[in-house]
Design a binder for these strands. Sequence first.
DNA 1: CGACCATTTGATATGGATCAAGCGATGTGG
DNA 2: CCACATCGCTTGATCCATATCAAATGGTCG
Lengths: 228, 228
Amino acid sequence: MLTQRAIPTGSSRGTNGLSHPVPAPNNALAGTIDMMGAAMPFARNAEIYGENEPADYLYKVVSGAVRTYKVLADGRRQVGAFCLPGDIFGLETGNEHTASAEAITNAKVLVVKRSALMALAGRDNEVARELWTVTGRELRRVQDQILLLIKTAKERVGGFLLDMAIRGAAGNQVELPMSRQDIADYLGLTIETVSRTLSDLESAAAIELPSSRRIVLRNRAALGLPNG
Amino acid sequence: MLTQRAIPTGSSRGTNGLSHPVPAPNNALAGTIDMMGAAMPFARNAEIYGENEPADYLYKVVSGAVRTYKVLADGRRQVGAFCLPGDIFGLETGNEHTASAEAITNAKVLVVKRSALMALAGRDNEVARELWTVTGRELRRVQDQILLLIKTAKERVGGFLLDMAIRGAAGNQVELPMSRQDIADYLGLTIETVSRTLSDLESAAAIELPSSRRIVLRNRAALGLPNG
DNA sequence: CGACCATTTGATATGGATCAAGCGATGTGG
DNA sequence: CCACATCGCTTGATCCATATCAAATGGTCG
């Protein structure tokens, strides 16, 4: 069931929910995942897991990028997170995934059996504490996403670019692995508004757009962040 | 510092963040809080804690209602949660509160020292697991709040009423402890839009408004929920 | 080279914000 | 006990940011 999905370039389905990326904590948990995890390749757009499926595994991105998302009954999709190398995702406190996850690009992902990690947490307090910490970090990230969603389009796009720049850690160069539609669904906007906002930021000399997936930040203060 | 705040009917300040209410888990943690907690009264609008303050305590509502919120640099306020009797709030994985908390009405709250609970969690795996579970439950709640924020005004208000009805567990009767401004800041709308939407729902016979704080659900299907 | 898909750009529509009064309940002081 | 001030809520008129509808452009792959 996991392996069945590893190869096919899956389609975009899913039901309805959000999900998690968490900067790899530099600690026992991350090390444990690296030790215990089985590396699996996922093709672009392949489903890694679906919402409401048993959360038997958790994941850590090695290379490539992953999106988690929920789809509402009317078809609207909300992307909950973009997971980059080092990020942990799919960790649940309940028994089912609360969102679906797909590879955005061809990606390599470490897969760890949850039951094994839970058993370890039962013996090792540090691991238990770190599982909690990872969930807490994800909680803060989602809370920040809410703050982003109440802002203007310019602030949302600016905040998103800033976040990607920080996470990419490549200075002012940002290489976006995801489509405009992914960004729009993450920010609660339409692709047209995302595209227009990027064009506006370029006109305002806040960014450069050498290509649609490559962005150079030129003036961070001009990224439309009147607030935090 | 805690007691100083217990009596005064504090003013509404705060810095910038979100927070958590969690339906009291019917388990060891809830029992422990009930045992270890010191009951404290807070007057209407009194601050319980402020964002970025040391998270030395966590809380459980006994009676009344509490709101957690963040304030952006430009003054916009985002209410993160409404906490009702039984709800746990102020539980952090980090050392600082990520939001501020205030009593909405005069309220009685159980206060527990975090260090004591953490020490207990170090000895008792079940308590440790439940702390994690509470954070995970809060994470799902915040994820649901994001889904609400991408909907139309009618859907947001409808979803909010439905949620309050379920939590209040008083059938179709809903007694709202919070103001229209609180609701607006929770839903990412203005008070005018909240008020108008309620009026519209009343015209559409979906609800009755015997008074501004009392609402009767008449037709749940008509609460504008084309989706989940 | 041609087809397809992602992205940009343009024109128009609209939901919710903003600006501005009114209204009703609550509470206070005379 | 009542008049008045205050506060929270509702309602109205208008504006604007973003969605929607539509078309052109550009980049990629066979």
